[in-house]
Design a binder for these strands. Sequence first.
DNA 1: ACATTAAGAGCACTCTTTATC
DNA 2: TGATAAAGAGTGCTCTTAATG
Lengths: 351, 351
Amino acid sequence: MVDIEPPHGRPDVRPAVMADVARLAGVSHTTVSRVINGHPAVRDHTRERVLKAMESLAYRPNVAARALVTGRTRLLGVISMDTAFYGPVSVLTAVERSARDAGYAVSIVHLPDLTARALGEAADFLTGQAVAGIVAIIPHIATMNALTHVPDVPIVAVEGCSGTIPTAAVDQYLGARQAVEHLLALGHETVAHIAGPADWYEAPERERGWRDALEAAARPVPPVERGDWTAKSGYAATGRLLARPGLTALFAGNDLMALGALLALHEAGVPVPGEVSVVGFDDAPESAYFTPPLTTVRQDFAEIGRQGLALLLEQLEGRAPGHRHVSTVPTLTVRASTAPPGAAAREGRRA
Amino acid sequence: MVDIEPPHGRPDVRPAVMADVARLAGVSHTTVSRVINGHPAVRDHTRERVLKAMESLAYRPNVAARALVTGRTRLLGVISMDTAFYGPVSVLTAVERSARDAGYAVSIVHLPDLTARALGEAADFLTGQAVAGIVAIIPHIATMNALTHVPDVPIVAVEGCSGTIPTAAVDQYLGARQAVEHLLALGHETVAHIAGPADWYEAPERERGWRDALEAAARPVPPVERGDWTAKSGYAATGRLLARPGLTALFAGNDLMALGALLALHEAGVPVPGEVSVVGFDDAPESAYFTPPLTTVRQDFAEIGRQGLALLLEQLEGRAPGHRHVSTVPTLTVRASTAPPGAAAREGRRA
DNA sequence: ACATTAAGAGCACTCTTTATC
DNA sequence: TGATAAAGAGTGCTCTTAATG
């Protein structure tokens, strides 16, 4: 037996390969491969010897070799945006978790900006990595539309929209209606709305829900103020809203803009919910600790992340996707930022 | 010329391989390889023919084949936690961006819990993917220590700590001192502290900074209240703080706990900053829109993300890392939540 | 003839070695 | 001889085909 060793012998740390396992187990590399892939034509006794050999050599299959020969990887791509917003972040986490549970690794790319070019580059990068599929977490309409052109890789959208791509999302319209109906049920004559940017998927949907709820109750529909999802924009929009007469109820497009609204109202000496009620959208964890705690619409981001991944796996495994657009129902969480109109006056112990 | 085609001829979409390029360009596969890898021994004329062929075939090198033969991948692993906290999320984004700029893909794994086992599995998963290196974004001490045992892959920690692993982080101690010194300079006799969980890297550092600042000014050091970074815990801790006499200044371990504190103070009828001043830590984007806008310590998460990646690349490329622990200086951002003690009484127009 | 196992041909590249102008 | 190009072995695995008991 001739063992050629490196002359000044730190132990050879080259990772074990299949041939090493085969040699140690006294079988051919083919048999080792079969054991790894669960092929039935292996005697139990043999399988155990192989398993033991793999164990003792700490053998790990080489993913590159495997990918090369099979032409497939266990790698999924995720395209997300460059924001720390609660929603996309939660979705990403859920997608990654589900993917790994299904035995896939996740390669992530953040878009530097919301252009078709950036999206194209991201998709290119991922296909260059030979990803088996792509999950897009991009609730931006124009950017998302560019995704239609990505070739040869199954794609799903989460928290986004696209006529042609399978999608998992929360029913924004329904959430908005719930928010507005809650306010109307409290007795408010109408509800003002700070909408998100019109080119984001959620914004027009929420706006439509707001409008429909108002019209269904035959209430006046005030003009929309528009923000960009940030607290800053919510603050500014509320300033404009305050210049109008008769504001008693405000539906903000998301929790962050609601936060800005709360500050603007506070600075203007307007008690919430005493004189103005505020509702948000998202139910980020901190929204329960705003001053006052925010009534808001809860979206289950983790759930749509999981659903999106399931949709992708359906495509990857060739199962016919039953329904290509999955939608989740949001729930209204009532907290301290909403009350009947004029509550301040009636209570008489505020301001 | 015999072209064997699939019988009912949708065009063959098999991606082009190097041999196809070589054939089209009329050179050998070796030459194509050289062009791809920037080898000098290729005539300009030849190089151009090859480039043109690659272009017209939309050729993309096969990463698996490449990884197989070179034994290296352009893949980096990131281990993060399962939270939507602003800090880790921002770091992750910056790391990914920097990695991609350096030509690396990023595979991410979120820890389901903060145990050594979960960490081990995550690291295992990543080494199984043959990552070239790992970035750990885990500011949890015990978990992080388990990382020392990961074999054979260069590792760096960002926003974490470890005696043995190269680290990029913000100087927490300094930030805490700045916060407390700001409060003392305003005239507060002492400063209460809501610390983060003791097993997280940042918490003891901030606590130490707080204590040292107080002691350096010969002030009494009140007992610490402890939270878990959430707004909820900040709210609860502030409740306990309010039971003590003489609270005028509060240094919360992070912005979220400060948010909870703000709510607790508001509900207790304590004006901020009129009767109590509050300082946070992190400077998340929304903190500027708390009620009132929060004075806080700004950490440049993106910067430490970039630095962490740079540290990793140094290891990967064999450059001797000059300094293995990189530290960034945070800056105090003063907003409306801090004022001299007794400001409410002096101003006389509040509550 | 059947359940197991082995042999060997790729897979798409890189890189060393050899040939050519 | 030196610049440029080609040949060919090797990378670790899967899978089809052939051999074995």
